[in-house]
Design a protein around this nucleic acid. Structure first.
Lengths: 203, 203
DNA sequence: CGCACAACCTACCAAATGGTAAGCCCAGCG
DNA sequence: CGCTGGGCTTACCATTTGGTAGGTTGTGCG
């Protein structure tokens, strides 16, 4: 029973992972279930059979993605290490993760913008946990422990923004500056960013 | 003749400015011309009469917004001043501008993501000019003049991301952390960011 | 075998989408 | 006066949207 259930689950997870790409690329409104199902190689109604509705599929995609980021965060948070190191490790891991596939950050950025006008009753996803953990860790830092939650939040948002725009705007940047220049920039990106993180956290 | 034409233009500009808000909030696909026209107090067909098609209206909104940012950039670029000062002035002006109304950056961020899958033949808007000017100015800096275009581009993208995420994610942040905390963070945001800008550009 | 159950399909639906066609109203101007 | 042209309307259109209903296949299991 558990075996069939897990098999059921793994196929579902695969479907969600594929649907994520389209949601990330076109946004919720821009990705129709017809288009998604076509990309998945099955009919629109098969998708609805699995997930009930477009909303549910999208929510699952966001949740899965947020949990992925949360996992990266947890992996970087080995106990005992100073919070500065933990944050640096997280951002480094995040960058290398996004370097392989920018889908997660595209989807979550869109979700971040769209969520503004959704009914606020649906409580926060794992994405909230990510941000709250980051803020808490920043507040555990020597430099930022006495500056208040607001300052820590402001810093977290700035660092996340600095880390992600490069990937959300990938396509446009390549169009404007050419692919070779962008690849070069991507290579130097992590160094420059690591420097910013280190300096804002420590000195 | 020119008078009627200019009057014609100003009403059009007003319509575009209003339509921008909906495009920024819901994205291109999420904002129907019916919804936009309803918000503007006229019928769907009146909109189409003015602008011909939804695509054209959206393109105008993006162009208008990009030109607004470009204007901020030009205002900060008084000749004779060192490029570091110019960049600091630009980012400061950008933040205060976005503080009043986050619409521009929401729209442009969405455009930045969507443009990835558009036909690349439609050449870049004023937004391209903004980025290219920023990169050029960074390269005029003492610290970054010998590091190559790629490094300058990477830095510009990071700074823009750091400056904007706070506004694109405004709604979600307020939901997660509460309005008061976010307002406090907004107050400290500009100081922290100015510090990051200054240090990455100079030292 | 028989039966349940999941996966998937075809066929359909009401509503909303972007867009066209044709006409009304009214200021401006010869 | 006439009539021209811009702003705006109602009426209509084909297509696409998310979603439902019901049937068909195949697989596992008593």
């Amino acid at each position: 029973m558990t075996e069939t259930a897990s098999q059921h689950e793994t196929t579902r997870v695969q479907l969600i992972r594929s649907a994520r790409r389209l949601f990330a690329a076109h946004g919720y409104a821009g990705a129709s279930i017809a288009a998604i199902s076509q990309e998945l190689g099955l009919t629109k109604q098969a998708l609805l059979h699995h997930f009930g509705s477009k909303d549910r599929l999208y929510a699952l995609a966001v949740e899965q993605t947020a949990r992925e980021i949360l996992q990266i965060l947890f992996d970087a948070m080995e106990e005992g290490r100073p919070p500065e190191d933990q944050l640096e490790a997280f951002f480094a891991a995040l960058l290398s993760h996004l370097d392989e596939d920018a889908t997660p950050v595209q989807l979550l950025t869109r979700e971040l913008m769209d969520q503004a006008l959704k009914p606020q009753d649906q409580a926060g996803s794992s994405l909230d946990d990510v941000m709250q953990s980051l803020v808490a860790t920043v507040q555990a830092t020597e430099k930022w422990q006495d500056t208040g939650v607001q300052a820590a939040l402001a810093l977290v948002v700035q660092l996340l923004g600095a880390a992600t725009l490069n990937f959300t705007a990938k396509g446009t940047l390549q169009r404007v500056f050419g692919r070779t220049t962008c690849q070069g920039a991507g290579g130097q990106f992590s160094e420059i960013f690591a420097d910013v993180v280190s300096r804002t956290l420590r000195e």
